[in-house]
Structures are given as C-alpha cells and as structure tokens.
Design a protein around this nucleic acid. Structure first.
Lengths: 342, 342
DNA sequence: ATTTAGCACTCAAAGAAGGAGAGTGCTAAC
DNA sequence: GTTAGCACTCTCCTTCTTTGAGTGCTAAAT
C-alpha cells in the first residue's frame, strides 16, 4: 500500500487529536474537526489502510484509532512542524539563566528546572564534560591539628577540596613543601598520563611524608576521575503523575526506579546528535520501564564539541513539536551561557 | 466507659492484626487467632465498646474494625512493646557506617539510606547543626587570571570553597595581604558578631581592593549562613508506593510534593525529644498531605546537645514497634559515629 | 451479671444483564 | 473513487442480584 497525501493528512489529524485528548480518535471526529473535505466513510477507509500499514492501531474493534509507535515515528520524521515558540518563552529562558552564570552546577540545576516547568515533562541534563581533566594546581592547607584540606584546581576551572588526615607535627614549611612537590610532578597531567614512575618520583622527593602523600594522591586521583564522570540533573519527575497513562502505581514506580539509575539515564541520553535533536519513541529506548515514554534529546556544545546532553521525557503521546522547539531553545541558551562563563 | 484488661487485649489484637494485614479485623478473627479464651460474641461486645470510646472505627457496618488515630495513640503510649532487635541488625548498622566516617554529609547520606532500607519506610535526617558557626580561617588562592577561590574553614571543621572574580593585576603579595586582613578581622566571629565597624575596618586596611573584598565578604557571609541552615536528607521515598494505602496517585503526588518542601520537613522533625523518640500519628502532624501517615522522630546528640533529627515516615498502619527500635538503634549509632569523627 | 449461641440484618464487592453510544466494516448506489 | 446506509461489535454505564463477611440484638446458659 502506498502513502499518499490524503493518508498523510488523516494520520496527522489522528495523531494531533490523540495527543490533545488522550482518547482514541474516530473517523467522524477527523472528518468534522480537521475539514479534510471528505466523509467519515472515506476517512474510515483511509484509517483502515493506515492500520494495515502499521501506523495506527485499535484498542478494540469499535473504538477509535490511536497512533502506533511507528505512527509517531512517521509523524516525527515527516509530518511534524516545529511549533513556533513565542519570543516570550525565549525571553523567560534567557532572563532566568542570565543572572546565574557563576557556577556551572547551579546553572545546570536551574536549566533543568526551567525545562521541566516550561514543558510539564521530566527534564534531564548531563553536566558539561570537560574532556580529560588535567591538574592545574594543588595546595595543601592546614585546618586543625592532624587535619588538612587539599585544594584541587582543574584546568577546566573547576575547584574541589577534600579533607585528609595528616601527622600533627607538620609545620608551615612542610605544607609548602608538599604542595610544591605535588605541583612539580603532577601539574598539567591527566589521570591517564600518570604512571608509576611519577608517583615514585613524588615519594622519592619527600619520603618522610609517604603516608600523607599517599592519601593526597588518592584524593587527587578520585577528583580527576570524579570530574570525568558526568553528573545527571533530573527535574520535574512529578510531572509524570499528571499524565493519564501513569494512573497505575506500578508504572510510576518502575519509571522512578529507573530515574535513580544514573548509568541508565546516561545511556539513554548518549546518542548520535550530529544532526541535532534526536527523538526516541517508546521501545526505541530499549528499556522495559520506558515503554509508553518518549525521550527528546539534544546535545550542547563548547567550541564545536559536544560537552553534554539534554533530555526531556514524556509519554509517547507527548507534544513533540512543542517539546522539540523548547529543547532546541534551551540547548542554544545553555550553550550560550556556558560560552559566556569561560 | 472504663478500659479494662480484656479491652486492652482486644484493642491490641485488633491493631496488630490490622497492621499485619491492612484488612478490617472481625471479631471471629480475634477470638480465633489471639486466643483470648472468649467467644466472638464477647469480643464483639468489647469491640463495640472500644468503638464507642473512640479507639476503633468501622469503614461501614458489617465490615470489621480498624484502629482510629486515637487507637494507634493508645497503642503507642500504653500497649506497644519495643521489638527486640536482633544483634544482626545492630551489626549491619555499625558495619555499614563504620567505614564511612570521613565526611559528615556522606555519613548522613548513608545513614538515611540504611534506615529506609531496614524499615521499608521513608527516612529523613536533618544534618548536624553545629551551633553558631565561627570562622576559623580564610584563605584566598589564585586559580587563573581574574579568578580566585576563597577557602573558608569553619570552627566546626567544615571546609568550603567559593569562586570569586578578582582584578587581573593581583600578585602573590596581594593574595597574602587580603587573606591576612580578612583573618585578622573576622577570625573567631559568628555572623551575629559582625557589625558595620568590622567591615569598615576591613575596607580601611585595604581600600584598593574594595570590590574584591566586598565579594569575598559576601561569600563568607553566605557560607556562615548556609552552614547555619540544616540540610535535609531524604531516602526511600519510593517505599511509600508499596503501601496499599497509597494506591491513588493523588495521595502519592501530594506527599511527594511535601517532600520537596525542605522547610516543612524541618518543621515536622523539630519537636521536643527530651524523652527520646516522638511518634506523631496522622493529623497530629498538622499537614493535610500527612493524613494517613505517621512519623517516628528522634534526635541525635553531641556532648549532650541535640544537633540533628531523624525521622521515619510510613502509613499510620506502620509497624511502630519495629520502627521505634530501629530508629533508636540508628540514632545511637549516628551519635556514636559523629562522636568518633571529632 | 456475664457470657455465648443463634439469628436476622447490613453492606460492600463481585458478577450478570441490559441498554446506550461510539465506532467500525461492508455493500450498494452515486 | 466516494459516500450513504445499515448491521454489527465492543466498551462503558447502570441496575439488579447474589454472596459472604461481619454486625447487633435477644434469649438462654453459666
């Protein structure tokens, strides 16, 4: 069977109506509301064809039709028009974010909240990945007898501190010496560039403090490694509860449990964004609990390189056009803001 | 009407059975399962009396009885025996926590997770409050052109860092000078002890860097103030979904929304713990969304002073005896751990 | 004066029966 | 190719009935 213009119009009308009402759509409704200029009977024939082609399905005979996963896919790929987003929303986004470009984490936090509020779906953001981290600067500062804090400054500009235990007899000179030696050996290196020789060189230069050095090296390692991990920000989970397809607690629970698995979320968001936004519908997400959910994902950039991802999760019946427009807008805004923070 | 021994036994049996099954309890069940040595008819009379006294209620005539809020209250105050907790659980608690006494936040995080896992309810912990924070030490370190990090060490041992923008022309001497001046004026003071004179003194000593100082003073202020705020740790929210009383999405949503209001949670947990554990049943929590929920709370101490609270939230039909025992155990363990961390 | 057996009564939950309504598929006419 | 007409299907809603658990009351037993 071949797709023709009228079939496309019927499919589009069915999908739009179902997205708006969540009720199976009948031939009468379509003929009346979406003035196609044909009678319900004709629409009926077309719908029957569309069902045979796999784009529509019937919950049971004598209910209307609902879009199948394939139907949504066709819609998203060929029929959907991007919703023109009012300048108002663009303004809201920029105004909300512009005042908060001090700390990356805070910015991401805010962006994900904004995204979920604008759409009433659930927003994910993968925090910016700054490539292999190299160590710019280390400093060991005393805080009290037996305790010190290691300040770790990464090349990305990220700063971190960790508390370590140190011998009580250390004096100011010792602190300075330890800092200097660590800087001397480790500055400018990524974790991958470390090798036993370097660590041994550190110990050789200051063997008296072997125990302390060991601890510090460990926290630096953790820190380089940790920053290498992309944090996941998640907002608007409760929006799910407003969707009629999530009336049964079991589905909600399954999904919420999924939300707690960071690794899974990352995998869901990591896909090929060469050509911009990617939409994954229902089982395309390859995850039992995601059945009935769609995910709109995008990537944001720095200097032309992908550094993080944005995701928006809703029911398969989600308002794709609006979702895509807003995700796009938020992605641009975030890219902008991160550029400004440099 | 007077409470007598047999009434108490009937009430206890009803409550225990209802807690175990979540089904209204009939006279037959009680007479049979909880061998009181009397016939169902007698039990029926007693139950009727207990209903009149307000301890039991009927969902409808010809259902069994369920405990009223007052019934639970009587149970908790007079009938409940603490469940003897096996040493096994004590061991689990200590083993889990002992390896993690490096960072307070991590310890609290882990403790709340543990509490929720052991009980299958939702666990809250208010992070330790360390009294008015005084500033022990400040240090300003350069990180890159135009950026520096302020390291703030509080008297509680807590360390924090914040990034500030600085003029690009600052040299090493300037950094040292700024650090020294700030330390000189602000060391050992709480936020309350700050006054305009002190701030002016800082500016007088280093007026050239007025802009930088202003920023730094602001972050110190934030930091002292922020640490003054008690963070709320929340774990096991999804456990709620396993309870039959939370079949309707609306109730779940109301409760989850409550969970996002930190202030409200704090108010719920802050109550008079002079005599140990406090149990608040249903509307005793004075919060619409908490209808049908009970909260077992406790306080943990340092040097005899309350520094934080622990809460466990379940349905009013919760296993109070087990909950209380475990909350008690976890509270002791946490107090212990924090003592060791000093 | 309690306790208990007996029995009528009540009520929710579960099932059965019967429209109503929305929607379909097919056929025949346009 | 399109459409009117019509029989048919299936869910949903309502109403009715049945079932069973559990009660409350009364009168007899202890």
């Amino acid at each position: 069977m071949k797709m023709d213009e009228r079939k496309r119009r019927v499919l589009l009308a069915t999908i739009l109506d179902y997205i708006a009402t969540a009720d199976p759509v009948g031939s009468r409704t379509i003929a009346r509301k979406y003035n196609l200029g044909v009678s319900p009977a004709t629409v009926r024939n077309e719908m029957s064809d569309l069902e045979e082609m796999g784009y529509l399905e019937q919950p049971h005979t004598s209910a209307g039709r609902i879009p199948s996963q394939l139907g949504y896919r066709y819609y998203v790929d060929f029929l959907m028009k991007k919703e023109p987003i009012e300048g108002e929303i663009r303004d809201i986004i920029y105004q909300t974010l512009l005042n908060r470009i001090r700390e990356t984490d805070e910015l991401i936090q805010l962006t994900s909240k904004l995204l979920s509020q604008l759409t009433n779906y659930t927003a994910f953001i993968l925090a910016p990945f700054c490539g292999e981290n190299t160590l710019r600067h280390i400093k060991l500062l005393p805080i009290e007898e037996g305790k010190a804090v290691v300040i770790i400054v990464l090349d990305s500009g990220h700063v971190e501190h960790r508390i370590v235990e140190v011998p009580e007899y250390l004096n100011e000179g010792d602190y300075a010496a330890i800092s200097a030696i660590l800087n001397g050996h480790l500055q400018g290196l990524t974790l991958e560039q470390w090798h036993p020789g370097i660590i041994q060189a550190v110990y050789r230069d200051l063997d008296r403090q072997r125990e302390t050095l060991k601890q510090i090296i460990e926290v630096i390692e953790q820190s380089l490694d940790y920053e290498h991990e992309q944090k996941v920000f998640l907002k608007g989970t409760l929006n799910i509860l407003d969707q009629p397809e999530f009336k049964q607690i079991e589905r909600v629970k399954a999904l919420f449990e999924l939300f707690e698995e960071e690794e899974t979320i990352k995998n869901l968001l990591h896909c090929d964004h060469e050509n911009g936004i990617v939409i994954k519908i229902g089982t395309e997400n390859r995850h039992e609990s995601m059945k009935g959910c769609s995910l709109v994902t995008a990537a944001y950039h720095r200097q032309g390189k992908v550094i993080g991802n944005i995701g928006l999760l809703g029911p398969t019946r989600m308002e794709y056009s609006r979702a895509v427009s807003i995700v796009e807008l938020v992605t641009y805004a975030l890219t902008d803001m991160l550029e400004k923070m440099r």
